[in-house]
Design a protein around this nucleic acid. Structure first.
Lengths: 237, 237
DNA sequence: AAGTGGTCTAGACCACAGA
DNA sequence: CTGTGGTCTAGACCACTTT
């Protein structure tokens, strides 16, 4: 673990515990430099991180004061299913049911803003948690991305896109609904006919507004709920 | 003007103008160091600022790539139902079914972090779109807020809380699921027994982490879907 | 093996605030 | 005036990725 991070953790815990309260002044950078036996850059590295977290405010000529004892809440970030579950400590597996280059349905063509003749990679995967089916996912990515049906789709798809193709996903739009499970999906998900399911439709974008992936997921609601944290803006009404 | 800021402005304008496009690799830190005649720390100071702005992503062992040409899209904000629909041009009405001060169920007590004897205002409302039922909502707010059962609950609840009581909601956590509609709810929502419904459980907070409202909504999925825009962070995996 | 960004050191000068 | 944080230099070693 980097030196500055240990100092960062120490300072953060001291602020959180009240060793330094809101309004207090932290020791000067020089004082930390000597008391921790590190260079000033290392101290500043830690202080910059605390500044970014919104806990302290350094003022030239004055010093560094504590302005918060806890970090402000962060809104949710876009995560893939694999990532989402991994964060909660639940490992999931993906079983590839089919992967082929096809002509997209018109809905997919619209969402991905494809050219008239453009094809897509259509990926159907079943996601499992400890062997039990959780979600049936239909992913569509433009064939022009160069991701072929032969690749390994058992890991996080975003990593595959980002690592192999130098595209970076910047944001996504999710639309969540509920429906009665279709018979084909019911058998794959091992659900009784007529069960309710959660449906997630997501369009992911690269750059400012170029759609790069469209997903439709059908999820068993008994073992998953869609969680999101949203900030309230001043003009939200 | 500091050196690193001039470099920062230069790089940002080059990225915005397309001199470096999304996916391109920036010159290495060493290359910039020599071509601009500054130290590596100064270069890194500029690159860190660009990283914070979300325009570039440095990867150890690889290099620094441009991931956006403009500042990122704004993520969704927390909105009440009334606000949410108003934004899309669909006016909704709220019909108050009941409003009373009660002892909360334990689940509500936990979510609102209430004291053992603390009571809540329990509000049951039916939300309608052009006369047709859309959602059944159970709102819980601490009785200590001072909002009594006699107030007008047909408008946005957040406005009522914020305007009359000087509390400002800062964020909320939503948990969205799917379920089979319960018989009582089915009749109110005019749904057949066994229909799937969307369930939304929300906790809204004031300040850093003080819960101020808990809502459970049961929504007809045929006329509503939950939409959200999420950013992708650099460490989202 | 070569090159990348991440970390770290040991210095230095500056503008600024406060006594 | 002294001390603060802000900026800057010129080195160095590291883990890591790619070749």
């Amino acid at each position: 673990m980097p030196l500055y991070q240990r100092l960062l953790d120490l300072l953060r815990s001291q602020i959180e515990s009240g060793r330094y309260s809101v309004g207090d002044q932290l020791p000067t950078e020089h004082a930390m430099r000597t008391s921790f036996g590190v260079s000033r850059s290392t101290v500043r590295n830690a202080l910059r991180a605390l500044t970014d977290e919104g806990l302290i405010r350094p003022t030239p000529g004055v010093g560094t004061v504590v302005i918060r004892s806890r970090p402000p809440v962060q809104p949710s970030l876009l995560r893939g299913f694999t990532e989402d579950f991994a964060r909660r400590g639940v490992p999931t597996q993906a079983r590839v049911i089919s992967a082929q280059i096809v002509d997209p349905p018109s809905q997919v063509r619209d969402r991905l803003e494809l050219l008239p003749e453009e094809q897509v990679l259509h990926l159907v995967r079943l996601r499992l948690v400890s062997g039990a089916p959780l979600a049936l996912m239909d992913n569509f990515v433009p064939a022009s991305l160069g991701i072929g049906p032969e690749e390994d789709f058992t890991g996080p798809l975003y990593e595959l896109i980002e690592r192999n193709h130098k595209y970076y996903i910047t944001y996504g739009r999710d639309a969540i609904g509920a429906a009665t499970v279709r018979p084909e999906a019911a058998s794959v998900l091992e659900l009784p006919i007529g069960s309710p399911v959660l449906t997630i439709k997501r369009t992911a974008f690269i750059g400012y507004d170029r759609p790069i992936e469209y997903v439709e997921a059908i999820v068993r609601p008994d073992h998953y709920e869609y969680n999101v944290t949203l900030l309230r803006g001043k003009d939200a009404s």
